[in-house]
Design a protein around this nucleic acid. Structure first.
Length: 305
DNA sequence: GTCCAGGGTGGCG
DNA sequence: CGCCACCATGGA
Protein backbone atom coordinates (compact mmCIF):
# COMPACT_ATOMS: atom_id res chain seq x y z
CA UNK A 1 0.00 0.00 0.00
CA UNK A 2 1.32 3.36 -1.11
CA UNK A 3 -0.30 6.73 -0.57
CA UNK A 4 0.54 10.36 -1.09
CA UNK A 5 -0.25 13.39 -3.18
CA UNK A 6 0.78 14.29 -6.68
CA UNK A 7 1.15 17.88 -7.89
CA UNK A 8 -0.94 18.30 -11.04
CA UNK A 9 1.20 19.63 -13.86
CA UNK A 10 -1.46 20.75 -16.36
CA UNK A 11 -5.20 21.43 -16.41
CA UNK A 12 -7.23 18.40 -15.24
CA UNK A 13 -10.77 17.57 -14.20
CA UNK A 14 -10.13 14.16 -12.68
CA UNK A 15 -13.75 13.06 -12.40
CA UNK A 16 -14.79 14.09 -15.91
CA UNK A 17 -11.67 12.50 -17.38
CA UNK A 18 -12.38 9.15 -15.71
CA UNK A 19 -16.12 9.11 -16.53
CA UNK A 20 -16.31 10.71 -19.98
CA UNK A 21 -16.66 7.38 -21.75
CA UNK A 22 -13.07 6.38 -22.49
CA UNK A 23 -12.58 4.30 -19.30
CA UNK A 24 -15.10 1.91 -17.79
CA UNK A 25 -13.63 0.68 -14.52
CA UNK A 26 -13.65 3.81 -12.34
CA UNK A 27 -16.23 3.88 -9.56
CA UNK A 28 -17.08 2.30 -6.24
CA UNK A 29 -16.22 -1.32 -5.39
CA UNK A 30 -18.19 -2.48 -2.38
CA UNK A 31 -19.96 -5.64 -1.12
CA UNK A 32 -18.94 -7.62 -4.19
CA UNK A 33 -20.54 -5.08 -6.48
CA UNK A 34 -19.35 -2.27 -8.73
CA UNK A 35 -21.05 1.09 -9.12
CA UNK A 36 -19.71 2.91 -12.17
CA UNK A 37 -18.65 6.54 -11.62
CA UNK A 38 -19.56 6.56 -7.90
CA UNK A 39 -17.23 7.92 -5.19
CA UNK A 40 -16.55 6.40 -1.78
CA UNK A 41 -17.32 8.18 1.50
CA UNK A 42 -14.02 10.07 1.39
CA UNK A 43 -14.50 11.25 -2.18
CA UNK A 44 -12.09 8.75 -3.75
CA UNK A 45 -12.86 7.02 -7.05
CA UNK A 46 -11.45 3.50 -7.46
CA UNK A 47 -10.23 1.30 -10.27
CA UNK A 48 -7.91 -1.52 -11.19
CA UNK A 49 -5.36 -0.18 -13.64
CA UNK A 50 -2.27 -1.97 -14.97
CA UNK A 51 -2.86 -4.72 -12.35
CA UNK A 52 -3.00 -2.38 -9.35
CA UNK A 53 -5.90 -1.27 -7.20
CA UNK A 54 -5.84 2.50 -7.27
CA UNK A 55 -7.93 5.22 -5.59
CA UNK A 56 -7.75 8.87 -6.64
CA UNK A 57 -9.18 12.14 -5.41
CA UNK A 58 -8.57 15.63 -6.73
CA UNK A 59 -8.25 18.64 -4.47
CA UNK A 60 -7.24 21.82 -6.24
CA UNK A 61 -3.80 21.24 -7.78
CA UNK A 62 -3.23 17.83 -6.22
CA UNK A 63 -4.25 14.25 -6.87
CA UNK A 64 -4.40 12.27 -3.64
CA UNK A 65 -3.66 8.62 -4.30
CA UNK A 66 -3.84 5.23 -2.61
CA UNK A 67 -2.35 2.31 -4.52
CA UNK A 68 -1.93 -1.39 -3.81
CA UNK A 69 1.62 -1.18 -5.16
CA UNK A 70 4.28 1.31 -6.25
CA UNK A 71 5.11 -0.66 -9.39
CA UNK A 72 3.14 -0.23 -12.61
CA UNK A 73 4.36 -2.37 -15.48
CA UNK A 74 3.49 -0.72 -18.82
CA UNK A 75 3.71 -3.39 -21.54
CA UNK A 76 3.52 -1.07 -24.55
CA UNK A 77 6.72 0.71 -23.50
CA UNK A 78 8.25 -2.25 -21.65
CA UNK A 79 8.93 -0.25 -18.49
CA UNK A 80 7.96 -0.32 -14.83
CA UNK A 81 6.93 3.04 -13.41
CA UNK A 82 6.48 4.16 -9.81
CA UNK A 83 3.17 5.69 -8.81
CA UNK A 84 4.05 9.30 -9.59
CA UNK A 85 5.68 8.41 -12.89
CA UNK A 86 2.58 6.39 -13.63
CA UNK A 87 0.16 9.25 -12.96
CA UNK A 88 2.26 11.46 -15.24
CA UNK A 89 2.06 8.79 -17.94
CA UNK A 90 -1.61 7.84 -17.47
CA UNK A 91 -2.95 11.41 -17.63
CA UNK A 92 -0.56 12.48 -20.42
CA UNK A 93 0.88 15.39 -18.47
CA UNK A 94 3.54 15.49 -21.17
CA UNK A 95 0.91 17.31 -23.28
CA UNK A 96 0.05 20.96 -22.62
CA UNK A 97 -3.71 21.24 -23.01
CA UNK A 98 -3.78 25.05 -23.09
CA UNK A 99 -2.64 24.71 -26.71
CA UNK A 100 -5.91 22.84 -27.39
CA UNK A 101 -7.96 25.41 -25.49
CA UNK A 102 -6.61 28.21 -27.69
CA UNK A 103 -7.73 26.26 -30.76
CA UNK A 104 -11.16 25.60 -29.25
CA UNK A 105 -11.74 29.22 -28.17
CA UNK A 106 -11.55 30.36 -31.77
CA UNK A 107 -13.99 27.75 -33.11
CA UNK A 108 -17.74 28.37 -33.44
CA UNK A 109 -18.68 24.94 -32.03
CA UNK A 110 -15.73 23.89 -29.94
CA UNK A 111 -15.84 27.03 -27.79
CA UNK A 112 -19.09 25.72 -26.28
CA UNK A 113 -17.35 22.45 -25.36
CA UNK A 114 -14.97 24.40 -23.10
CA UNK A 115 -17.56 23.97 -20.32
CA UNK A 116 -16.00 20.51 -20.11
CA UNK A 117 -12.43 21.80 -19.79
CA UNK A 118 -10.16 19.49 -17.87
CA UNK A 119 -11.02 16.35 -19.80
CA UNK A 120 -7.81 14.62 -20.86
CA UNK A 121 -7.20 11.55 -23.00
CA UNK A 122 -5.74 8.65 -20.98
CA UNK A 123 -3.06 6.09 -21.75
CA UNK A 124 -4.88 2.88 -20.87
CA UNK A 125 -3.75 -0.73 -21.13
CA UNK A 126 -4.10 -1.81 -24.79
CA UNK A 127 -5.31 -5.40 -24.39
CA UNK A 128 -7.93 -4.39 -21.82
CA UNK A 129 -8.99 -1.46 -24.01
CA UNK A 130 -9.39 -3.75 -27.02
CA UNK A 131 -11.62 -6.26 -25.23
CA UNK A 132 -13.59 -3.41 -23.63
CA UNK A 133 -14.35 -1.71 -26.92
CA UNK A 134 -15.21 -5.01 -28.58
CA UNK A 135 -17.97 -5.13 -25.95
CA UNK A 136 -19.00 -1.55 -26.69
CA UNK A 137 -20.89 -2.12 -29.95
CA UNK A 138 -24.33 -0.45 -29.81
CA UNK A 139 -24.15 -0.67 -26.03
CA UNK A 140 -24.47 1.75 -23.13
CA UNK A 141 -21.58 2.96 -21.00
CA UNK A 142 -23.19 1.36 -17.96
CA UNK A 143 -23.51 -2.05 -19.62
CA UNK A 144 -19.98 -1.91 -21.02
CA UNK A 145 -18.69 -1.18 -17.51
CA UNK A 146 -20.73 -4.04 -16.10
CA UNK A 147 -19.46 -6.44 -18.76
CA UNK A 148 -15.82 -5.63 -18.03
CA UNK A 149 -16.46 -5.95 -14.30
CA UNK A 150 -18.12 -9.37 -14.62
CA UNK A 151 -15.34 -10.61 -16.89
CA UNK A 152 -12.66 -9.49 -14.44
CA UNK A 153 -14.55 -11.03 -11.53
CA UNK A 154 -14.51 -14.34 -13.37
CA UNK A 155 -10.72 -14.15 -13.59
CA UNK A 156 -9.78 -13.22 -10.04
CA UNK A 157 -11.04 -11.96 -6.70
CA UNK A 158 -8.71 -8.98 -7.06
CA UNK A 159 -10.68 -7.95 -10.17
CA UNK A 160 -7.49 -7.69 -12.20
CA UNK A 161 -8.23 -7.65 -15.91
CA UNK A 162 -7.84 -11.16 -17.33
CA UNK A 163 -4.92 -12.28 -19.47
CA UNK A 164 -5.25 -13.37 -23.11
CA UNK A 165 -4.60 -16.93 -21.89
CA UNK A 166 -7.63 -16.83 -19.60
CA UNK A 167 -10.06 -15.28 -22.09
CA UNK A 168 -8.95 -17.56 -24.92
CA UNK A 169 -9.99 -20.61 -22.90
CA UNK A 170 -13.51 -19.32 -22.22
CA UNK A 171 -16.58 -20.56 -24.05
CA UNK A 172 -19.50 -18.40 -25.15
CA UNK A 173 -21.67 -20.06 -22.49
CA UNK A 174 -19.23 -18.90 -19.77
CA UNK A 175 -20.03 -15.28 -20.61
CA UNK A 176 -23.80 -15.46 -21.03
CA UNK A 177 -24.37 -13.04 -18.15
CA UNK A 178 -22.40 -10.20 -19.74
CA UNK A 179 -24.84 -7.50 -20.90
CA UNK A 180 -23.39 -7.15 -24.37
CA UNK A 181 -25.67 -6.41 -27.25
CA UNK A 182 -24.67 -9.26 -29.56
CA UNK A 183 -23.25 -12.73 -29.05
CA UNK A 184 -20.61 -12.09 -31.70
CA UNK A 185 -19.02 -9.55 -29.30
CA UNK A 186 -18.14 -12.36 -26.88
CA UNK A 187 -16.93 -14.55 -29.73
CA UNK A 188 -14.74 -11.72 -31.07
CA UNK A 189 -13.22 -11.16 -27.61
CA UNK A 190 -12.31 -14.84 -27.31
CA UNK A 191 -10.98 -15.00 -30.87
CA UNK A 192 -8.92 -11.84 -30.40
CA UNK A 193 -7.34 -13.35 -27.27
CA UNK A 194 -6.41 -16.46 -29.27
CA UNK A 195 -4.92 -14.19 -31.94
CA UNK A 196 -2.71 -12.57 -29.27
CA UNK A 197 -1.65 -15.98 -27.98
CA UNK A 198 -0.77 -17.00 -31.53
CA UNK A 199 1.78 -14.20 -31.64
CA UNK A 200 -0.08 -11.01 -32.58
CA UNK A 201 1.77 -8.23 -30.75
CA UNK A 202 -0.75 -5.49 -30.01
CA UNK A 203 1.83 -3.42 -28.16
CA UNK A 204 4.14 -2.95 -31.11
CA UNK A 205 1.46 -0.88 -32.86
CA UNK A 206 2.74 2.16 -30.94
CA UNK A 207 5.64 2.18 -33.37
CA UNK A 208 3.47 2.11 -36.52
CA UNK A 209 2.14 5.13 -38.36
CA UNK A 210 -1.57 5.83 -37.97
CA UNK A 211 -2.71 4.37 -41.29
CA UNK A 212 -0.89 1.08 -40.82
CA UNK A 213 -1.94 0.72 -37.18
CA UNK A 214 -5.58 1.36 -38.08
CA UNK A 215 -5.46 -1.03 -41.01
CA UNK A 216 -3.83 -3.72 -38.87
CA UNK A 217 -6.58 -3.50 -36.27
CA UNK A 218 -9.51 -3.43 -38.73
CA UNK A 219 -8.15 -6.54 -40.43
CA UNK A 220 -9.06 -8.39 -37.23
CA UNK A 221 -12.55 -9.86 -37.22
CA UNK A 222 -14.89 -7.99 -34.90
CA UNK A 223 -12.90 -4.75 -34.98
CA UNK A 224 -14.14 -2.11 -37.42
CA UNK A 225 -13.24 1.54 -38.03
CA UNK A 226 -14.69 2.93 -34.83
CA UNK A 227 -13.39 0.34 -32.38
CA UNK A 228 -9.94 0.51 -33.99
CA UNK A 229 -9.85 4.28 -33.49
CA UNK A 230 -10.89 3.93 -29.84
CA UNK A 231 -8.09 1.44 -29.20
CA UNK A 232 -5.55 3.67 -30.94
CA UNK A 233 -6.66 6.87 -29.17
CA UNK A 234 -7.29 5.57 -25.66
CA UNK A 235 -4.41 3.13 -25.30
CA UNK A 236 -1.80 3.36 -28.04
CA UNK A 237 -0.94 7.07 -28.05
CA UNK A 238 -2.51 7.91 -31.42
CA UNK A 239 -3.91 11.31 -30.48
CA UNK A 240 -4.78 11.89 -34.13
CA UNK A 241 -7.32 9.03 -34.14
CA UNK A 242 -10.90 10.32 -34.50
CA UNK A 243 -13.48 7.66 -33.48
CA UNK A 244 -16.96 8.29 -34.91
CA UNK A 245 -19.80 6.79 -32.88
CA UNK A 246 -23.49 7.72 -33.16
CA UNK A 247 -23.07 10.86 -31.03
CA UNK A 248 -20.13 12.14 -33.04
CA UNK A 249 -21.92 11.26 -36.26
CA UNK A 250 -24.92 13.34 -35.15
CA UNK A 251 -22.68 16.26 -34.17
CA UNK A 252 -20.93 16.10 -37.54
CA UNK A 253 -24.23 16.08 -39.43
CA UNK A 254 -25.49 18.96 -37.30
CA UNK A 255 -22.48 21.29 -37.45
CA UNK A 256 -20.18 20.19 -40.27
CA UNK A 257 -22.69 19.13 -42.94
CA UNK A 258 -21.76 21.86 -45.43
CA UNK A 259 -17.99 21.60 -45.05
CA UNK A 260 -18.13 17.85 -45.56
CA UNK A 261 -20.88 17.95 -48.19
CA UNK A 262 -23.07 15.49 -46.31
CA UNK A 263 -26.70 14.94 -47.25
CA UNK A 264 -28.91 13.11 -44.80
CA UNK A 265 -28.18 11.74 -41.35
CA UNK A 266 -27.91 8.00 -41.80
CA UNK A 267 -25.35 5.34 -40.91
CA UNK A 268 -21.91 5.94 -42.39
CA UNK A 269 -20.38 3.92 -45.17
CA UNK A 270 -16.78 2.82 -44.82
CA UNK A 271 -15.71 5.55 -47.21
CA UNK A 272 -17.68 8.28 -45.42
CA UNK A 273 -16.19 7.24 -42.07
CA UNK A 274 -12.67 7.54 -43.44
CA UNK A 275 -13.39 10.87 -45.14
CA UNK A 276 -14.83 12.46 -41.99
CA UNK A 277 -12.13 11.02 -39.74
CA UNK A 278 -9.38 12.24 -42.08
CA UNK A 279 -11.02 15.69 -42.26
CA UNK A 280 -10.62 16.20 -38.51
CA UNK A 281 -7.18 14.60 -38.50
CA UNK A 282 -6.00 17.05 -41.16
CA UNK A 283 -7.60 19.97 -39.35
CA UNK A 284 -6.42 19.24 -35.80
CA UNK A 285 -3.50 16.82 -36.16
CA UNK A 286 -2.38 15.42 -32.84
CA UNK A 287 -5.35 17.13 -31.13
CA UNK A 288 -8.01 15.47 -33.33
CA UNK A 289 -8.77 12.73 -30.83
CA UNK A 290 -9.05 15.24 -28.00
CA UNK A 291 -11.36 17.40 -30.12
CA UNK A 292 -13.46 14.30 -30.69
CA UNK A 293 -13.70 13.73 -26.94
CA UNK A 294 -14.85 17.31 -26.31
CA UNK A 295 -17.47 16.99 -29.07
CA UNK A 296 -18.59 13.74 -27.47
CA UNK A 297 -18.87 15.39 -24.05
CA UNK A 298 -20.88 18.23 -25.59
CA UNK A 299 -23.28 15.83 -27.30
CA UNK A 300 -23.91 13.55 -24.35
CA UNK A 301 -26.79 14.22 -22.03
CA UNK A 302 -25.56 15.54 -18.67
CA UNK A 303 -26.48 12.33 -16.80
CA UNK A 304 -22.98 12.05 -15.40
CA UNK A 305 -21.18 15.12 -14.02
C1' DG B 1 -45.61 -0.03 -25.11
C1' DT B 2 -41.44 2.50 -27.90
C1' DC B 3 -36.83 4.22 -28.50
C1' DC B 4 -31.92 4.08 -28.30
C1' DA B 5 -27.14 3.09 -26.72
C1' DG B 6 -19.13 4.94 -27.94
C1' DG B 7 -20.95 -1.20 -34.36
C1' DG B 8 -19.61 -4.90 -37.40
C1' DT B 9 -20.21 -8.37 -40.98
C1' DG B 10 -21.77 -10.35 -45.09
C1' DG B 11 -24.64 -10.50 -49.17
C1' DC B 12 -26.60 -8.44 -53.11
C1' DG B 13 -26.91 -5.28 -57.02
C1' DC C 1 -18.66 1.01 -54.10
C1' DG C 2 -23.83 1.88 -51.54
C1' DC C 3 -27.37 -0.18 -49.27
C1' DC C 4 -29.46 -3.34 -46.09
C1' DA C 5 -30.68 -7.25 -43.06
C1' DC C 6 -29.10 -9.21 -39.17
C1' DC C 7 -27.47 -9.63 -34.41
C1' DA C 8 -31.04 -9.94 -30.08
C1' DT C 9 -29.60 -6.39 -23.80
C1' DG C 10 -31.43 -3.26 -20.69
C1' DG C 11 -32.67 1.42 -19.08
C1' DA C 12 -35.51 5.56 -19.68
Amino acid sequence: MVQGKFKILDDLDLYKTLTCGQAFRWGLYRDGKFSYAKLDGEGFIWSIVYNNFLALKQEKDYIYYKSSSDKFYIPQIGKTLNIEEFLHFYFKFDKNITELYRIMEKDRILKDALIHRGIRILRQEPFETTITFIFSAQNTVYNIAKSVYLLSKKYSKDLIFPTPEFISKLKVEDLKELPVRFENRVISAIEFSKHVLNGFNLYKLVNYNYELAHQTLTSIKGIGNKIADCILLFSLDFDEAFPIDVHIKNMVFKYYRDELNLKENRSLTDKEYKTISAFFRRKYGKWAGWVQEYLYALSRKPDIS
